[in-house]
Design a protein around this nucleic acid. Structure first.
Length: 275
DNA sequence: GCCAACGTTGGC
DNA sequence: GCCAACGTTGGC
């Protein structure tokens, strides 16, 4: 759709004013955490270079909710909530040879990569670490640990089904209503501070990156087709499952990353929506 | 179109 | 820094 008319190249500048592109070895890494997101408010979700993730973004419509996830950092997890503010349009960073996400194989008259615009909604009052979700997902019982007993067996079930837990690497994945609800509740209630998660779960951790998981569409529930689409993988991707999150970029172009500067440096984001 | 090798991602 | 999972590339 829209091409870049509405998004001149400059449109992305704001994002980089607060985030950083780090060049190391042959890769560039874009760090973008919840702090950056909160200050920028709306940002194009550029750099997704994975077909499955890209197809999921194409399904998103304004209003779809997004879970913003910090990946590639010491304490990965969900740091905030956002929503899709512009449907998929060509990712212009793919055509800029000086950009970390440049992809020499795509042309402007035949866009290969797309991005959506994501608008910050709120921070997670309690950072929800991946380690917590994993801990819950790995437990054999149907009931949650006492510390987060409020999510109930239904919450445990929803977490166990999350792609974030079952497959990990896709930068953009679907989040069903139940999972969305549990994550939101966890973020509001907290309570796992004393659990043996291995890493700290305060959210203050150090580096964070940006990543998001998508959200569900609000209100409407469309069908829930959520599962259906899977993307057909067009060209490349054939494995429906795997793709986890990543959006990578090409070889030396950059990818995202993170690292953190001291404390916060989230990087990528991914957004997914469910429908 | 299949398959092996290689490169990347991303959690730990 | 290491390792496992996965995607991509390229030969046949």
């Amino acid at each position: 759709m829209s091409r870049c008319a509405n998004h001149p190249y400059d449109a992305q500048i704001p994002k980089y004013q607060s985030s950083k592109i780090v060049k190391s070895h042959l890769c560039h890494i874009v760090q973008f955490g919840v702090d950056d997101f909160e200050s920028v408010k709306t940002t194009p979700w550029e750099g997704v270079r994975n077909f499955e993730a890209r197809n999921l973004m194409k399904e998103m419509v304004p209003g779809d909710k997004i879970l913003f996830y910090h990946s590639n950092c010491k304490n990965p997890g969900i740091a905030g909530f956002a929503e899709v503010s512009k449907e998929a349009y060509p990712d212009y960073t793919a055509w800029d040879s000086s950009h970390p996400y440049f992809d020499p194989k795509t042309k402007q008259d035949d866009p290969k990569w797309f991005m959506i615009d994501a608008t910050f909604v709120s921070r997670a009052q309690h950072f929800v670490p991946l380690s917590l979700l994993r801990y819950i997902a790995d437990s054999s019982g149907a009931e949650p640990p006492d510390e987060v007993g409020y999510i109930g067996a239904k919450g445990v079930k929803a977490i166990k089904a999350m792609p974030l837990v079952t497959r990990g690497r896709l930068s953009v994945q679907r989040v069903d209503e139940e999972a969305w609800s549990v994550v939101q509740t966890l973020a509001e209630q907290g309570g796992w501070e004393d659990m043996p998660l291995g890493k700290k779960s305060t959210g203050k951790g150090k580096s964070v990156k940006k990543a998001a998981l998508g959200g569900s569409r609000q209100g409407t529930k469309e069908q829930d087709g959520a599962e259906q689409d899977e993307e057909a993988v067009s060209e490349g991707e054939r494995h429906p499952q795997a793709a986890a999150s990543r959006a990578k970029k090409r070889k030396f172009d950059g990818a995202q990353d993170e690292q953190g500067s001291a404390e916060a440096a989230p990087r990528r984001r991914s957004a997914r929506v469910k429908k």
